[in-house]
Amino acid sequence: MSSVTHTIRNKARLLRQAQRGFTIVELSVAVAIAGVLLVSAIALVQVVLRQSRANDVVSSIPRVMTQIDKIFSRSTNYVGLNTDAAIGFGAFEGVFDITGATGNRRASNRFGFPTTVDVATDFSGAGTSSGYVITFAGIPTNSCADIVSSASATGVRAILVQPEGAIGTRSITAAGIATLTLAGIQAVTQGGADAAAATGGAAVVQGHLANGSLDIPAMADARACGTNRPSVSIGLVNWK
């Protein structure tokens, strides 16, 4: 009987040990690992979403500019061009969210902020309105260099970049664009050293070099994609 009793006691002890489950330390380690994996997964999703939205911005550029130039191909200027007009003749079809009533419509890019069209009223001569700027607001600084370099390869004639004071509030303003001149853009030196006087504060990262290439030092400058602010406005310039 003593042998049987001993066996029963051993089995009972093993059963109690099995029922104890995880210790507090083991549970803490498991929770910590799960937390790290969750944070990593969220960060990865955010990166993928940002890259996808940046790709949408880049893919929209040829469509928007081609449609504007097509509509104004028989005109010597861009008089009458603005955001609502561009929406009306289909320049923003595709990857933009269009809201508002006719006359006051808004085109939001994939980052959820306005994309606007403004005419440079004295771009290459008195009152000619021969240039325009498409401004993407609310572009994350982490996506700035990718978008600028990709846009540069689409045939855009000039690119402006300016950090935003508040996310989504465009820093390349309509008032600044109205005073923009071709001579001012072309006078900017390598690296965009004198861009403020020529563009109302925006850094010129393309359009001032003889070969039309991207000015990488200007793009990386603290007044452009190298800023410590969370977002920038990117302006794409075209002219007759």
Rank of each mutant, 00 (worst) to 15 (best):
Y132V: 14
S52Q: 13
S130H: 04
G112S: 09
I87K: 04
D118E: 14
V64T: 12
N55H: 11
F123D: 06
L81Q: 05
I71M: 08
V57T: 13
G80E: 03
T121M: 10
S75Y: 06
T116I: 08
L44A: 15
V133W: 02
G112E: 08
A85R: 13
G100M: 05
S75P: 03
E93L: 15
R110Y: 12
G103Y: 02
S60P: 05
V58M: 10
R53F: 08
S75E: 11
A120M: 09
F111N: 01
A41D: 15
I68Q: 09
L38T: 15
A85E: 02
F92N: 01
L81Y: 05
S130R: 08
T99F: 02
L81N: 09
T135C: 12
G112V: 11
A86C: 01
G125P: 05
S59W: 08
T115W: 12
D118V: 00
S59E: 08
S59D: 06
T102M: 15
S124M: 14
F96P: 00
S108Q: 10
Y78H: 07
Q51R: 15
R106E: 01
A107S: 06
D118G: 02
G131P: 05
V117A: 03
G94H: 07
A85I: 02
I139K: 08
V47P: 10
F72T: 04
R74G: 06
G131C: 08
F123N: 11
R63K: 14
G125R: 06
S60Q: 13
F113D: 14
R53I: 00
Y78N: 07
T76C: 05
T99M: 06
T99N: 13
N82T: 03
G112M: 06
F92P: 03
D56V: 09
S40N: 13
F113G: 00
A107T: 02
A41F: 15
G94Y: 14
G103R: 01
R106L: 15
A91C: 01
G127Q: 10
F111W: 13
F123E: 14
G131E: 04
G103W: 07
A107L: 06
F96R: 02
G131N: 04
A54R: 08
L44N: 10
D56F: 09
V45S: 14
F136Y: 15
T121N: 15
M65T: 05
V133D: 11
V47G: 07
G90E: 05
I61D: 09
Q46P: 01
S60Y: 09
R53T: 01
N109G: 12
D56Y: 03
G125F: 02
Q67W: 00
G103H: 04
Y78E: 07
M65R: 13
F72L: 11
A54E: 03
V39R: 13
T115S: 07
S59Y: 11
L44Q: 15
D56H: 07
V64C: 03
